[in-house]
Design a binder for these strands. Structure first.
Lengths: 148, 148
DNA sequence: TATCAATGATTGATTCGTCAATGAATCAAG
DNA sequence: CTTGATTCATTGACGAATCAATCATTGATA
């Protein structure tokens, strides 16, 4: 993002790089667990068993991506999948004991990491930051709905 | 990112989604031009001919990614590449007339898009947002250097 | 009931990114 | 001069995301 002259371009540039580097940092700290997979497990951990469809919406990735991630997580023994008997289309996803144990540890680690990331920012600045991000998010959502 | 309970987690969640959705919005508005390729062309447009190596550092992607992008852009007729005669290792990348023309238009479009994205945010909030992002970025950079 | 639409999951193709290994050219030191 | 290290670009293998097409199941309706 070369044209970092304008204020707005700089903001967008930093959002991109922060996201990218944060992902890399997360990966290296969490021993290869990607943020997406963490998100999948975290949802199952805090919400309980979920249909695959709902998991996909919560994590906000493609259907295909979810299917492939869940396959991996299943072979790793972290989750189980079983078809619903009432409706044979849906699949219920659930943590195994191993998965529950692991995600509990990972959650602590992530907590520790995010604490470190914000150690240099005052809480009021954090609140202001969140507010601005929400404004931006809303604008983007609006744009996407109207221009498509 | 389910655990949107804590302030900090919400911030990280929004950074991720804003970045993702912004990329998609950019793609659809710019007729399939990816942000990375825009960045490549933009650098060439504003800085002039560049050695491939420097382009790679500016855009901040892998060596491999750059060579592949440049190959594509070359077959599209937007850039030319020629080896340096003084040093046969390096390759100089330059915009074609077509490329210059196109990126000029795309730059306008992007300008228009970012203007729309920040229409709901006061300038002082934008400045505050940028400042916070920089703090976050610095902390991440520090963490990456110390933990690796 | 037979058909057609909607829903949920899967697969294949494509894109984009990384890493690791390789090749080619240059440079420096014995 | 030659050997070895460095730099730059390329390639192949891989993981992750998307889209489009497909398949099975369910539900609605004519």
């Amino acid at each position: 993002m070369r044209d970092s002259c304008s204020l707005r371009d700089q903001i967008l540039y930093h959002i991109i790089t922060v996201q990218k580097e944060m992902g890399q940092l997360f990966d290296s700290e969490m021993g290869g667990l990607s943020l997406t997979r963490y998100d999948v497990l975290s949802n199952l951990y805090h919400v309980g068993p979920l249909r695959q469809r709902e998991l996909q919406q919560r994590v906000d990735v493609d259907h295909a991506a979810i299917t492939r991630h869940l396959k991996q997580l299943e072979t790793q023994g972290l989750i189980t999948r079983r078809r619903c008997e009432k409706d044979n289309r849906v699949i219920y996803v659930e943590l195994t004991d191993l998965g529950r144990h692991q995600i509990a540890r990972w959650t602590e680690q992530k907590q520790c990491l995010t604490d470190r990331l914000f150690v240099n920012m005052k809480v009021e600045d954090q609140q202001q930051l969140l507010a601005s991000l929400k404004v931006l998010q809303d604008t983007i959502d609006y744009e996407r709905k109207t221009t498509i």
